[in-house]
Amino acid sequence: MFALALIELPLLYSEVYRRQGGHRMITSAFEYHRPSDLAGALSVLEEHGDDARVIAGGHSLIPMMKLRMADVPHLIDLQDIADLKGITVEVGTVTIGAMTTQHDLINNKALLAAAPIIHEAALQIADPQVRYMGTIGGNVANGDPGNDMPGLMQCLDATFTLVGPDGTRSVKAREFYEAAYMTEREDGEILTQISFPVTNSGFAYEKQKRKIGDYATAACAVLIAKEDGKVTSASVAMTNLSDVPVLSEAAGAALVGTSCDAIAMKAAVAAALQDIDPTEDNRGPVEFKIHVAGIIISRAIARAWSRA
């Protein structure tokens, strides 16, 4: 599936300038659909194939439509489908409907207890206005390497539920992302929910950005479980440091069994840096990003350890 988003990739913007001398704020014409159930949404998708796309909060899709980088003759608004909203925490599992907004993630008490890392990360996404609209489903389905939720979901080892004409299937967040805007999701499928195990590990989401409303220069999600002063499990995932979110298994492995001392930390950072492949943009050149990534990763590990 190829999805587009408002992204910072200078590549796409210069493409806009190349094509239009760089001015756009009005989308091409489109048909607006607003089904009240999932079946209705799926059938419009099926009917129009490539010409149709779902819209959640619209805060990635609409900017791309305005820039005319995305041409969507049939827009299917999911906001009337009540089943797609809500957060439940049951028998050790958190389940979040795709249409749950980032604002709701921040303000849900059960979620704060079950996975406080989501709270910490969501507060670092965009600004309150964007978070009132932007959804977790849109954020993970988008496939933009700048989005913060995909790396976080890999860190939490989340599972995505996709519903399509052939039924329902589950895909691991860790296997979902193929390349920038390329995901496992088929064109006819809708992401309905996200689930992951409740976690009481030490956690941290560390993000460097230029300003409020900016995507990460480098960001890192860390979960660390501790027993008897030693790390029993660790997961380290990174945002905007490659064309896909990066889960560094080697970094996690470097921490397990240690007391997160300076040597272990150094080894974990070195391992994580092996797994990233940042590109130059207006935030700075590759050399800078790698250096900052190392700092952000080590701060995230240190904070997660201090909370473990």
Binding site: E8, Y13, Y17, D127, R210, K211, G213, D214, N282
Partner: peptide
């Protein structure tokens, strides 16, 4: 601290949106 109009060698303006052109908010 960051606000600029920058061009690449081809004369492409690299900073023509508020994502890259820095307008500080109350936060900064």
């Amino acid at each position: 601290l960051g606000q600029e109009i920058a061009y690449d060698d081809m004369g492409n303006c690299k900073t023509a949106t508020l994502m890259d052109f820095f307008l500080p908010t109350a936060w900064e």
